[in-house]
Design a protein around this nucleic acid. Structure first.
Lengths: 141, 141
DNA sequence: AACATATATGTGCATTAAACATATAGGTGA
DNA sequence: TCACCTATATGTTTAATGCACATATATGTT
């Protein structure tokens, strides 16, 4: 499936194969983490698992990116954390969203709303130009 | 309007103001140029103007990005150009899309199609969690 | 006691895209 | 000739990211 919300790989192909086109929304990991944390406070490792619920196509998550984002969000006051030594295994940072973070997620949501409209506009314009003759706009996978 | 399909500015705010959140689709300039060129062959300077038809919010375009993208697309065989010395003013490179380029645009279109679905999924999930009580999901601008 | 494994949190490095500034050059009109 | 518009580029810097690697603790196994 030629689709991801992030991931940089192979935009400028090179191998024999077709270059894969992925629509990458930059920084999209941030709102995803905020949304997951609003739904339920959690620690990084758990979020890495739950992220696959949000991407359409589950794939291996990058722990580095997740932790980096969580720390940055905390620096910005969007989430706060406390060490959780209960349970088994090493201590974990339990994150929860602050009121600031909820506002930021709301801002993301409205940005996504706009984005959907713009992408639809692009797509309609594409269909109008390139799929006129065809039997009403089917796009490959 | 807190919205753009590209542009990096001020993600990590800093001033007194709210950090602006823009949903940035990476490389989106590429499919926009392809679409505009499919609609009508043109040269760079003209495309810079016509780009504002595609973004929801017109704004100053970056000539550097446009020309670089056109050259890259040409290197990749997606468009081809010829010098046009007719008309007045300095010579211009007139670009048109190749069959390869049309395929690439089609691939972009289906990526955009997927992207819309994924963004909608995100938004629905957000609404479900954060706008339950409210009078049915209004999002600020 | 040694070792493997699962959980959990990070750092460092190379690549890439984008924003912004600057350069080059011909054409037009005062 | 000088200013200005058109037109096409290049250079510089920063931010985001993918990937590989480093660290630490608890648990289970031999």
């Amino acid at each position: 499936m030629p689709w991801r919300l992030r991931h940089r790989k192979r935009l400028e192909a090179g191998n024999g194969e077709e270059p894969i086109i992925d629509l990458r929304v930059e920084r999209f990991l941030e709102p995803c983490l905020l949304l997951l944390l609003v739904e339920k406070p959690a620690h990084g490792y758990e979020l890495i698992d739950r992220l696959n619920q949000i991407w359409l196509v589950p794939e291996k998550q990058d722990p580095g990116a997740v932790y980096r984002n969580l720390r940055r969000l905390e620096r910005g006051g969007m989430v706060k954390s406390q060490w959780d030594t209960s349970g088994r295994g090493p201590a974990k940072r339990l994150y929860e969203v602050t009121p600031e973070g909820e506002k930021r997620l709301a801002a993301w949501a409205s940005a996504v709303d706009w984005g959907i409209k713009a992408l639809i506009k692009f797509l309609e314009r594409y269909k109008a130009t390139c799929l006129e003759a065809n039997e009403d706009g089917k796009l490959g996978r």
